[in-house]
Design a protein around this nucleic acid. Structure first.
Lengths: 159, 159
DNA sequence: TGCCTATTATTGGTATTGGAATTAAAAATG
DNA sequence: CATTTTTAATTCCAATACCAATAATAGGCA
């Protein structure tokens, strides 16, 4: 039986866990890239377009919680690979309508779920009680971070 | 009072929480950069050098869980800003010994803790019971991810 | 000692990410 | 209807981040 941990130890270990979890997700994306030829963001974007129908670039960016300027590059590479197409929106000529090509659909049918899917499968395999507990913990953590974000004006001087 | 959630809902929300937490940490780094002139990785590297004494580039990279080639760039920028110096190692001429300059130490004394510090403060403010629960949940999550990582050879065909 | 291997730092190339500025088009306002 | 404002997509720039390849040095072994 492991010795009792101090609060400080628990915190340190939790931090490391969080880092490892984030890194595990990144590594998973890299593995997919190695073996599948699509980077994590590319697969993710293709996934969104395949499952949520045609989307404008802005909507796609919103779904991925990324900036438009970031997604432009991802879309460029998917277009270059012939997996999606940019169609003009007949109703609003500022917009582009992004959709998978047949080839993109084909890839999507065979591809693993995007990074999040990995985690998803892990969570599915957990007992409900555990998921409940995790959920509550994450919410707490988020509240703490959120609260800090609002009320922590930087206390240090600028040069 | 909110309606009871299904397991699936709990999972979805947990995923989103995780993403938001990661994003909050990234945003914090960006805030520090805006107001302090050092990016997250730069502050982190300076912090490690300031607290762990002179380190070789490899050791610094190991501490940050980054590749050496990534850290070279971060070190370049810190050197360019005059916050650290590269000294030759008298015992092994392959190595460089990285250490803060007086100016680097000065910045470090006034700077907020690196990104992780933000989270750290949040955790410190939580009750021990909550931290215990979070710790346990994260460990479980990590186990699930780790297990999957090992036994999930990619099941999809390569083109 | 001299050759072979391993280690250290670096460079080069590609991808991701956000912010700032630009262009084009739609919407709102007078 | 003309002007202004807002919105959508894009381009450009800097910083991460990885991998692969290289140069220089150290260490091991015949």
């Amino acid at each position: 039986m492991p010795a009792a941990r101090t609060k400080s130890q628990l915190i340190q270990e939790s931090m490391q866990s969080l880092r490892r979890i984030v890194k595990a997700l990144e590594d998973y994306s890299r593995d997919v890239e190695q073996q599948f030829g699509l980077t994590g963001p590319q697969l993710w974007a293709l996934w969104e377009l395949g499952h949520e129908g045609p989307l404008s670039l802005k909507d796609l960016a919103a779904r991925m919680h990324l900036e438009s300027s970031t997604v432009v590059g991802v879309v460029d590479r998917l277009v270059a690979k012939g997996l999606i197409v940019r169609n003009p929106d007949p109703l609003d000529r500022r917009k582009v309508s992004l959709a998978p090509t047949p080839k993109g659909d084909q890839i999507l049918a065979a591809a693993p779920p995007p990074a999040q899917g990995h985690l998803l499968q892990g969570l599915e395999s957990m007992h409900r009680k555990r998921v409940e507990s995790l959920h509550e913990s994450l919410q707490t953590l988020e509240q703490v971070l959120g609260a800090r974000k609002l009320k922590a004006p930087f206390f240090f001087a600028k040069e």
